[in-house]
């Protein structure tokens, strides 16, 4: 049996960005909203609140968690054992039915997150995932050729490092706790947070000190 279940050959669309018929879909969701409000199923307030909920979440939340973990070993232990509770300590409310697990990069292990079946992502902490995370090519390749996928983001992993891929297939959403880069000993927590990009929290990148020095 072949391990290749589907063939994406010749498929030039990533399945993410609005398609040629986007206008029609935009009209349909507006129609659905209007009808749901007319029938009292949802209120405009419900929808507005949900939009605000998502707009209030961003990778900056993840950067805050990482920076605190770098400066506070106790917090780091709590982040690794109970991410939801640790997030709440910093005022990040990730309550809801899904669980969150933070996986730690070490000199021996580098972690990479994907969701091959849909695009599960720690939205309650980081907001909406980037387009590439939802793309068919990333969903396909992150599991069977993670090193090649990371290389496309400029991240080369040595053969002495174990690459651990996490396919978030069920009720848990994953975040990566990257390693603190050398040379950052004197930096404040806020400065440290500035080194942590969204891609570091997914595992296709790692924080780099030079990135800040050169602006």
């Amino acid at each position: 049996m072949s391990e290749a279940h589907h063939d994406l050959e010749g498929h030039d669309h990533e399945g993410v960005k609005p398609s040629a018929e986007a206008g029609r879909h935009a009209a349909r969701i507006r129609a659905i909203e209007v009808l749901l409000v007319e029938k009292g199923v949802l209120t405009e307030e419900d929808v507005r609140r949900q939009i605000e909920y998502m707009e209030a979440r961003s990778p900056a939340n993840g950067a805050k968690l990482v920076a605190r973990a770098w400066v506070d070993p106790g917090f780091k232990a709590r982040l690794l054992s109970d991410t939801k509770a640790a997030a709440l300590e910093l005022g990040i409310d990730a309550s809801g039915p899904v669980e969150f697990v933070t996986v730690e990069n070490t000199p021996e292990v580098h972690n990479l997150i994907v969701c091959t079946l849909c695009s599960c992502y720690p939205r309650a902490i980081l907001g909406r995932p980037p387009d590439w995370y939802k793309s068919f090519n990333y969903r396909s390749r992150a599991v069977n050729e993670p090193r090649a996928a990371m290389r496309e983001f400029g991240l080369e992993m040595g053969d002495d490092v174990e690459v651990a891929v996490h396919d978030s297939s069920a009720d848990v959403r994953y975040l990566v706790l990257p390693m603190r880069p050398p040379g950052t000993e004197g930096m404040s927590e806020e400065e440290l947070a500035g080194l942590v990009t969204r891609d570091c929290l997914i595992g296709v990148s790692v924080p780099r000190f030079e990135a800040v020095r050169t602006g």
Binding site: H6, V16, P18, R128, P130, W132, F136, R141, F153
Partner: peptide, 19 residues
Amino acid sequence: DLGGSSGAGPIDKSQHETE
């Protein structure tokens, strides 16, 4: 069920503005 699909190509890293 896309994990390991054959024929997958380079990852498009461009981002569109959420509409």
